[in-house]
Amino acid sequence: MALMHASSPHTAQPQTSANIMQLVLAAMVPGIVALVAYFGVGVLFNLALCGLTALASEALMLKLRGRPIGFYLRDYSALVTAALLAVALPPYCPWWIPVVGTATAIILAKQLYGGLGFNPFNPAMVGYVVLLISFPVEMTLWVAPATVEHGLPDIEEAFSLVFGNYQVDGFTMATPLEIVRHNNSIIMSQLYNEEPVLAKGSIAGAGWEMVNLAFLVGGLYLLYRKVFTWHAPVGMLAALFLLSTVFYDSGSSLSEGSPLLHLFSGATMLGAFFIITDPVSSATSTRGRLYFGIGVGILVFVIRVWGSYPDAVAFAVLLMNFAAPLIDNYTLPRTYGHAAPRRATEKED
């Protein structure tokens, strides 16, 4: 056997991109468990539908692009996109919602740009936003958490909700964020007493706060495993916290909600640890990621409070995806031996 010829280094750490994706999937488990516990099995339908669609569309596109299918499917990136979308969608939405959303995410937002690593926008968020704009009704109906009133649909009901023409209306209820946004008559403490969702919970609405907590736990695990650095999540959460503190207005009727409400409601933790940490579509350097996170945090608050959509993570992330190259350009690290960081747009003197 001829001796091998290769460039150094001749050794590498054992971690692979697929491992990273698997870790991300694993870290989502607590969040999913919480979702099932508080919102029922609906999320599992979403997961299954999204997952299958993702694999199918990824395989189809790889085939069309003449790439080895098995090799690229095994990087698990399609499944991560699918899972992110699945947990972001309202449970018990009709089956075509996850299918259309995932296909859009994989085909349009990922593979048409050249596949993993080449997509400028977060595919899951593209899928989500496309759905939200196209099917606003289906996308905004959230069932009430298990601990509040109606009770959850059982398996059979779930089936007919997803695949039949059963209407989910009977189970739904406004989310805490919507409640706070539409309120301008009563002060916060009263609102917390009157609204069942808020009353049953402790800080940010029943169910919601637990789901966010679960995603936080998963996110901290990923941080611990060094899958990403602290910069983006901390940037986003800090910005959100600061802004909501400023606009808390000490809980008056015009208050935009407490900082804790903003941190533990909606898709905040999911966004902070699982979506804006998607390396492909965010800024490259750590400093850039900090700014990226801060930008997302600000936009989330702005859209939540003054926009016309109930939650804002998806829009905020996409907007910041646009800004990522700009951030990159202004956050180049200072290379060893250089007095100042060099801009890619600047020529050497």
Partner: peptide, 8 residues
């Protein structure tokens, strides 16, 4: 850059 005909 793997292409379809490549086998790992």
């Amino acid at each position: 850059q793997l292409i379809a005909t490549d086998k790992i």
